[in-house]
Design a protein around this nucleic acid. Structure first.
Length: 340
DNA sequence: CCAGACGTTGTT
DNA sequence: GTCTGG
DNA sequence: CCAGACGTTGTT
DNA sequence: GTCTGG
């Protein structure tokens, strides 16, 4: 689960959407956006409706440093000078790179690390080091995609899953449903779509050529409630600012406590079926995450029907070549499946 | 001691 | 690189 | 997560 | 069937 997302906001928009209310020493309250930081090297973040593992996407982390400011959502203990963590948003590669992996490129290690199971985290040597080091992050996205297996059919129906708490009138899959200008202010914070915040673990990896790459894994857990009709695993989704800050605050929140937090959170999400255009991760430009009617979805195009007929005729002609015939029949069968 | 894993999802 | 299993 | 490759020789 | 690329 959670092997594809949409992340379409520009860097400054992502930062602003994660604004938190701060209280200065003089009692002044305002909204403060986390600071954007680029990934070292040339690993840029590119907004996309179709983000696959190995791509670089924005994640939020916290860093401790002095500042006479305290976050409103923080627990009331200690005073302002007790180093409130500074929030940073920076792109990292989706799919945690094993630290033992030696290569010049960060892909190709052969392990599936885009997700990690909450239940097993403490006993997995791939992820335990990140946990112990407090390398916890929050993965930001518009939402993620899930493919529901339909019993008796070989085809799968994709769904887009996103934060349930959207501002009135805003459709996160439709940019025209909110103002690009005036969507943020220090006084009122972010008025745009609510991003999905998934708990993650990250690590730093150094290539054989000495280049550093930061990468992450999305924590998953058993699905519950209505969502489990769709899928039996779900990312650990952080719903409130308090949950986000506790997960990020490795200084104050020990990892065992942090894991307990994730075990408690319930994903406040909603979803709708989307076009099978999302299946191919090369399609990234089109807004393929808007709702569709699955029954009307993707009837075979004229050319595909033509191809199916052409193949039927073609296979009759080459009946002497069994090998070719089988191949052709497989293709036809696939076309027929697609029609259903 | 050395060899081999180191991960997830889904499906049967 | 480091832990687990044999 | 899904789609698509899965290979060689030789030539530019 | 299984791995790699996006």
């Amino acid at each position: 689960m959670c092997g594809r997302t949409a992340c379409t906001l520009a860097p400054d928009e992502v930062c602003r959407s994660c604004s938190v209310r701060t209280v200065g020493k003089d009692g002044t309250k305002k909204y403060e956006a986390p600071q954007w930081r680029d990934h070292p090297g040339d690993h840029k973040y590119w907004p996309s409706y179709n983000v696959a593992p190995t791509r670089f996407t924005p994640v939020m982390i916290s860093e401790h440093h002095m500042k006479g400011v305290k976050r409103e959502a923080e627990k009331e203990e200690g005073e302002g000078e007790e180093l409130p963590p500074q929030l940073i948003i920076q792109p990292m590669m989706w799919g945690l790179i094993p630290n033992f992996y030696k290569a010049s490129s960060p892909t190709g290690h052969g392990y599936s690390t885009n997700n990690c199971r909450l239940e097993d985290l403490e006993e997995k040597k791939m992820f335990k080091p990140s946990l112990v080091r407090g390398q916890r992050c929050v993965v930001l996205c518009d939402g993620f995609y899930e493919w529901q297996a339909i019993k008796g059919s070989k085809t799968k129906q994709p769904y887009f899953i996103y934060a349930a708490s959207q501002p009135e009138g805003i459709k996160i899959w439709d940019r025209s449903s909110w103002d690009t200008e005036g969507v943020w202010s220090e006084e009122e914070g972010w008025k745009g779509p609510q991003l999905l915040k998934m708990a993650g673990l990250f690590s730093r990896w150094t290539s054989s050529e000495g280049k550093e790459v930061m990468s992450y894994s999305v924590v998953t857990k058993a699905a519950e409630g209505e969502f489990s009709d769709l899928h039996h695993r779900v990312p650990a989704i952080l719903n409130t600012d308090q949950e986000v800050q506790d997960w990020l605050n490795y200084g104050k929140v020990e990892y065992k406590e942090a894991l307990n937090l994730l075990a408690k959170v319930k994903a406040e999400v909603t979803w709708h079926p989307v076009s099978t255009q999302v299946n191919n991760s090369r399609n990234q430009e089109t807004d393929m995450n808007h709702p569709v009617d699955p029954k009307k979805e993707a009837p075979p195009s004229g050319s595909s029907l033509f191809m199916a007929n052409w193949l039927k005729k073609g296979s009759a002609k080459v009946k002497n070549d069994d090998d070719v015939k089988v191949k052709e029949e497989n293709k036809v069968k696939k076309e027929e499946d697609d029609e259903k």
